[in-house]
Write a protein that binds this DNA or RNA. Structure first.
Length: 254
DNA sequence: ATGGTCGTGTGACGA
């Protein structure tokens, strides 16, 4: 079973990119982030996929494409009574719990946006902790807006005080891993300089000045089924690309 | 050394 995650940076601007990606790669599941649309007709992208989304005008928004039927578990991260940002979608398909997130960026840092990011990560910790306690196997993918380690960015000094890399952010990400989760990509590739995002500015893509911020984390029983994991940089090279590229994993069926 | 890029929706703001 092939599962991908991709921040598309506007579904309106990237409709054809997503269609092409699904056609070329035929994943069983694709999780996308940053729809930047409240009600884009996602079902018209491919008749091979069922799709479920939580959208919002202009900002955020996540969706899941799946070849198998999807059952909604929740479309907001618990613990945020006044939080109306579309960043979380939890579903069940093929007896697997799937979570798609667009974790807050948090810049500028310090400031209220960074406070929101840390609070969101704590809420995420609480939700994943609950799933672990209930022994529900799950896979969480998306744009985490977290650079886990120095080797996941081209120049750690530049990123030192950034909301994506500063120590407090990395500690909060480490806490998620300490629930017993596996960073799927790192099981199959330990090299430095493997990135999922390259800024549009300053020739970051041709210079390979990127960062690895899109992740797939697996609970233990799903991790045991992991067959492959990779970053597919091809879509970043397409015309008018997203600034992110898909991360792909494969797990053994049933 | 400086400004440099997109997307949304038309003027900043978010990334």
């Amino acid at each position: 079973m092939k599962i991908g995650t991709w921040n598309v940076n506007s579904i309106k601007a990237r409709e054809e990119h997503v269609r092409r990606y699904l056609t070329d790669n035929a994943p069983d599941i694709l999780m996308v982030q940053e729809l930047k649309s409240l009600d884009f007709p996602l079902e018209k992208i491919s008749s091979d996929y069922e799709v479920m989304a939580v959208g919002q005008k202009t900002y955020n928004g996540v969706a899941i494409f799946s070849k198998s039927p999807l059952k909604k578990i929740m479309d907001a991260l618990p613990g945020g009574a006044q939080d109306d940002q579309a960043r979380y979608l939890e579903v069940e398909t093929n007896d697997i719990r799937l979570i798609n997130i667009y974790l807050p960026n948090g810049n500028p840092c310090p400031g209220p946006k960074y406070d929101y990011k840390l609070a969101w990560m704590k809420r995420l910790y609480d939700r994943l902790s609950e799933l672990r306690q209930d022994d529900i196997p799950f896979l969480i993918g998306g744009d985490f807006n977290v650079i886990p380690e120095e080797k996941d960015c081209y120049d750690p000094k530049v990123w030192q005080e950034d909301a994506l890399f500063r120590l407090e952010t990395r500690k909060a990400f480490r806490a998620l891993l300490n629930l017993g989760l596996t960073d799927a990509f790192r099981v199959h590739d330990t090299r430095a300089g493997q990135y999922s995002f390259w800024d549009y500015q300053a020739g970051a893509w041709p210079k390979n000045n990127g960062i690895r911020i899109d992740h797939v984390l697996l609970s233990p029983r799903i991790a045991d089924k992991l067959i492959a994991a990779n970053i597919n940089a091809t879509p970043r090279g397409w015309d008018k690309p997203s600034d992110h590229t898909p991360v792909e994993i494969e797990i053994a069926a049933a």
